[in-house]
Amino acid sequence: MERQDVVGASAWSYFVPYQPHLNRALQELRQRVFAEGDYYWGLGADWVPPEERRPRPQTIMELFADEYVQECGTHSILDMDHVLGPEERPDYRTVEPVSAVEAKERAGTNRLTRAHIDAIDDLVRSRWFGRCAVLHDGAGEPAEIYFWGYSGD
């Protein structure tokens, strides 16, 4: 994962092996990131007085029950809830797949690869939203899914 501070938010990106179910891939990625503790947990930070520090939550549900996390986020893919379906509109905490039209306009192809990331990276419209794209190998077969976005305050 890469992070970069952006006006109080953080940019994040992840690559996962391809599977045809984008939402399942997102949920598995979220579980992995949570289990690895690869997210911002401000309530355990050094700047928090020792008597106010709290250990990391044991579940994602417990994590998002915390008011601090609800307001500030985790600055990671954990802040995303689900991948949008074909008829859904982008909303807070959602991941929107790159459309075939966007891929063609930005990269000149419907079969994106890692070489096309720079062409699509700015498709994230604002904070608290994510995008995803199926990336293909040299033979044109789906190889991985790229998730990226900005979240956190």
Rank of each mutant, 00 (worst) to 15 (best):
V33K: 04
N23F: 10
V16E: 08
P55K: 05
E144H: 14
L63K: 02
V83L: 15
T74K: 03
D137G: 15
G152V: 00
D81M: 00
A35Y: 04
T109P: 11
A45D: 08
T74N: 04
G8C: 01
Q19D: 13
I77K: 06
R53K: 05
S10N: 02
Y18I: 12
Q19S: 12
S10E: 02
E51D: 05
A65V: 02
T59F: 02
A107W: 08
R32D: 12
R56H: 04
P49W: 06
E51V: 07
M80V: 11
M1D: 15
L123G: 01
P17S: 15
Y150M: 04
F129H: 03
R56T: 02
T74G: 05
T59L: 02
R114E: 14
Q19C: 13
H82W: 09
M61K: 06
Y150N: 03
Y92N: 11
G73S: 05
D121Y: 07
I120H: 00
R30E: 06
G85Q: 11
A103M: 09
W148S: 03
A45E: 08
V98E: 08
V6Y: 07
Y14Q: 09
A103L: 10
Q58P: 02
E96Y: 08
D81Q: 00
P55N: 05
R54Q: 10
P97R: 11
E88R: 14
H82I: 05
V98K: 08
E144R: 15
A9T: 06
P50G: 09
C72G: 00
A103P: 03
L63N: 01
V6A: 09
G42P: 01
V7A: 09
R111L: 13
D66Q: 06
H136K: 04
P97D: 12
E2H: 12
A119K: 10
P50R: 11
L84R: 07
W128I: 13
A143I: 12
D121L: 07
I145F: 10
R125S: 10
Y40R: 02
E102T: 12
I120Q: 00
R3L: 14
V134L: 15
P49N: 04
Y146G: 15
V48M: 09
W41L: 01
G108P: 11
R106H: 01
E28Q: 05
N110H: 12
E141L: 07
A65S: 04
Y40G: 00
W128L: 10
I117H: 12
L43S: 01
F64K: 03
F147I: 14
G138C: 14
P86E: 04
F147T: 14
P49I: 07
E141H: 15
G130E: 13
S126Y: 00
T113W: 08
Y18T: 14
A143C: 14
V33D: 03
T74C: 04
P86A: 07
W148R: 01
V48I: 12
